[in-house]
Amino acid sequence: MQIDFHHAVTYVVARLAGFAHAKAEVIAHAAQYVDDATNEGLISFDNQAMYQRIASAHKMIDYKNIQKLANHQVWIPFHFLPGNEGLAAGENPDADFRHKIVCRPNSFVAQEMVRACINDHQKPNALHRLGITMHVFADTWAHQGFSGINDRINLVEDVLDENNDPDPSLLIQVKNYFLDRFDEAQSQFVGGLLPLGHGAALSYPDRPYLKWHYTNGEGLHIERDNPKDFITAADEMCKAMRRFQLGDADAKVAGLSPESRHQLETMMREIVEENGDKRHKVWLNAIANEAFGFPAEKLRYVAKGVGSWKYQAIKDNRAKQLKHQIYSYHPSFLDSDWKHFHDALQAHRFAVIHEILPRYGISAA
């Protein structure tokens, strides 16, 4: 999924689930920031204080994508949550690891992840953790059938939309970029890049309006209906966020109302635009015009630079951190959204990799 869903739709669903604007804004910002937190490493301050952060994403054309450890620690807990073949813990102990880690929608693993988040609902970074969790939860629908490692199951063929038309642009551009600049041995990087996640399927899994189909790397024909999957994800997110507010992961709650569900699904189907940022603007305009039954809000999102969470915390407006950079420390850093987000990233990753996945016989790092 892209910024239109992870930021705007998450915000709308949070409001419909009962969160006030300020809290919904934090949840939605954290949900999108999972895709934008690409820097990692140590932050050093002028009073000798330090803070260690982790990354929750890498850029698409990034050498880290072919480092298996980076795949396991970034793509698996934050983008391609293993689905254990849709089975509960202990039901497939002899299954092939490759198939256990393929992402599946609303899997038992995903439900345990949501439960772990709700159980921590009183912590200072709870809203940030909820946003991160909602990002990963939603992606179990968008990224279903793909895995967060370099594997042949991700090598799709015959990727076509509902009219049997291909998207000829991005795959050709990526291949030509490398073939034009490197020798044959170096161009094998493409082979390491595209089998990761849904790289070979381009942005088809992330566009809300698409119906499409493909043949996966194991020769299976797969039909996908993104509008149906995305609205189901939004409905389940609404239930999860209602349970979070109650502090009860087992509470019997409703999802979206029929009217809200119809409205969101209609927008997902009718905003037919390949560019996620342009779709995002349409959703923001709708939010600003009271389209969803709650008061109008001028929602905005700044990933990096002035106005971003990072800038507010450490006054850094660079896209990439300089080596040996020393930052001025202020006590407000400890309660900043940026620190709470990175604290929540680490808590989420630890819970997924070290507590939840081992119960399913999965060792991911």
Rank of each mutant, 00 (worst) to 15 (best):
residue 38 T to S: 07
residue 81 L to Q: 00
residue 93 P to F: 02
residue 68 K to P: 11
residue 73 Q to D: 04
residue 114 V to S: 14
residue 44 S to W: 03
residue 31 A to D: 11
residue 104 R to L: 10
residue 27 I to S: 09
residue 92 N to A: 15
residue 66 I to P: 02
residue 30 A to R: 01
residue 36 D to Q: 03
residue 74 V to S: 02
residue 97 F to E: 08
residue 86 G to L: 02
residue 112 E to F: 01
residue 21 H to M: 03
residue 11 Y to W: 06
residue 121 H to Y: 13
residue 39 N to D: 01
residue 45 F to W: 02
residue 84 N to S: 04
residue 23 K to L: 06
residue 44 S to M: 12
residue 27 I to H: 06
residue 19 F to C: 08
residue 74 V to Q: 06
residue 31 A to P: 05
residue 111 Q to V: 03
residue 7 H to A: 04
residue 88 A to K: 06
residue 52 Q to R: 11
residue 99 H to D: 13
residue 84 N to E: 12
residue 71 N to A: 05
residue 99 H to I: 04
residue 70 A to R: 14
residue 32 Q to Y: 10
residue 11 Y to F: 14
residue 81 L to T: 07
residue 116 A to C: 13
residue 21 H to E: 14
residue 56 S to W: 01
residue 60 M to R: 09
residue 81 L to M: 02
residue 63 Y to D: 05
residue 101 I to N: 12
residue 113 M to R: 15
residue 85 E to K: 09
residue 73 Q to R: 15
residue 74 V to M: 01
residue 68 K to A: 09
residue 122 Q to C: 07
residue 50 M to C: 03
residue 40 E to T: 07
residue 111 Q to T: 10
residue 25 E to Q: 00
residue 13 V to H: 14
residue 106 N to D: 14
residue 122 Q to S: 10
residue 44 S to D: 07
residue 101 I to G: 09
residue 83 G to W: 08
residue 77 P to Y: 01
residue 72 H to Y: 14
residue 8 A to L: 09
residue 62 D to W: 12
residue 32 Q to W: 05
residue 31 A to K: 03
residue 112 E to I: 02
residue 61 I to A: 01
residue 95 A to M: 14
residue 82 P to E: 11
residue 12 V to Q: 04
residue 106 N to W: 04
residue 76 I to H: 02
residue 28 A to L: 02
residue 89 A to G: 07
residue 7 H to L: 11
residue 22 A to M: 05
residue 71 N to I: 13
residue 82 P to R: 00
residue 23 K to Q: 07
residue 109 V to N: 01
residue 42 L to Q: 04
residue 101 I to F: 15
residue 65 N to G: 05
residue 77 P to E: 12
residue 33 Y to M: 12
residue 71 N to S: 02
residue 105 P to T: 13
residue 102 V to G: 01
residue 64 K to C: 09
residue 55 A to I: 05
residue 90 G to H: 08
residue 122 Q to G: 15
residue 107 S to Q: 04
residue 20 A to P: 13
residue 99 H to R: 15
residue 28 A to Q: 01
residue 34 V to N: 03
residue 43 I to G: 00
residue 58 H to P: 04
residue 29 H to Y: 14
residue 88 A to R: 01
residue 96 D to T: 08
residue 26 V to M: 01
residue 62 D to H: 13
residue 23 K to W: 02
residue 111 Q to H: 10
residue 30 A to Q: 07
residue 74 V to T: 06
residue 119 N to P: 07
residue 45 F to T: 13
residue 91 E to V: 15
residue 52 Q to T: 03
residue 53 R to I: 15
residue 27 I to W: 08
residue 12 V to R: 05
residue 107 S to K: 03
residue 8 A to S: 15
residue 117 C to R: 11
residue 95 A to G: 10
residue 14 A to E: 06
residue 11 Y to H: 11
residue 121 H to K: 15
residue 28 A to R: 00
residue 12 V to P: 07
residue 91 E to H: 09
residue 91 E to G: 10
residue 54 I to A: 02
residue 119 N to L: 10
residue 37 A to W: 00
residue 92 N to I: 05
residue 16 L to D: 08
residue 84 N to F: 12
residue 86 G to Q: 00
residue 88 A to T: 03
residue 37 A to L: 09
residue 109 V to A: 02
residue 44 S to I: 13
residue 100 K to V: 08
residue 112 E to W: 02
residue 20 A to E: 11
residue 95 A to P: 11
residue 9 V to L: 08
